[in-house]
């Protein structure tokens, strides 16, 4: 089977559609158990428990955010302590400028912790997802437009060591998938 009559293009993988979220969940368990490694399921919304059904580990975005938070805290502490207590103590209304004024620095330490963490959460998520990107071979599959509406899809990439046109097709058929299609890149 070909897309747009183009057989010369690089094969991306094999896609298939299932009717519901629960069918996708069950299909994912079967594909996982069949030992595939380079594949994904696509849905209009995140499906509860799908990470386990696919055998995925927890996202490590949280580790990145933690590091960013510590960085923000450190920057804020340095930004305030060094000039305000050591280099250029600013005496306002005769109040002290020593270490014991530290509670006055807490709000900005908090704010910068949050700020850097939030930037890292958003941009870290995009980086881990390989976004932004202009295009992706799976968008060559016409049916795939439904994924952001009510479509549930699986796609097994041709680079998967277990990928084999016939056995993969048979496996997808056995989980009840429809519209099994070979997807080509540009």
């Amino acid at each position: 089977m070909t897309i747009n009559g183009n057989t010369q293009a690089q094969l991306f993988g094999m896609g298939a559609e299932v009717p519901t979220a629960s069918a996708l969940y069950q299909a994912a368990e079967r594909v996982r158990d069949a030992g595939y490694s380079r594949w994904d399921v696509y849905s209009p919304f995140p499906i509860h428990g799908m990470d386990r059904a696919m055998g995925l580990k927890k996202s490590w975005l949280s580790a990145l955010v933690f590091i960013a938070g510590i960085t923000g805290l450190t920057i804020a502490a340095a930004l305030q302590f060094y000039p305000s207590s050591i280099e250029y103590p600013l005496v306002v209304a005769g109040k002290p400028t020593d270490f014991f004024t530290v509670p006055a620095f807490f709000p900005i330490m908090f704010e910068l912790t949050i700020l850097l963490s939030a930037f890292t959460a958003t941009f870290g998520m995009l980086a881990l997802n390989g976004l932004p990107r202009w295009n992706h071979p799976i968008f060559n599959w016409d049916l795939f437009k439904k994924v952001s509406n009510d479509g549930f899809f699986l796609a097994i990439e041709s680079t998967d060591p277990k990928f084999d046109e016939e056995s993969t097709r048979a496996m997808l058929e056995s989980v009840g998938a429809k519209h099994i299609t070979l997807i080509y890149g540009d």
Binding site: D40, P46, V65, F110, I114, M125, L131, P132, I138
Partner: peptide
């Protein structure tokens, strides 16, 4: 949309990001 595909490998990081942002916004 930045090329969003809706794959579960994306949703996994996405949901974590959303949870973290909610957790950060609450005290904020």
């Amino acid at each position: 949309a930045l090329g969003w595909r809706g794959g579960n490998r994306q949703w996994k990081h996405y949901e974590m990001a959303y949870l973290i942002l909610a957790g950060l916004s609450t005290p904020l």
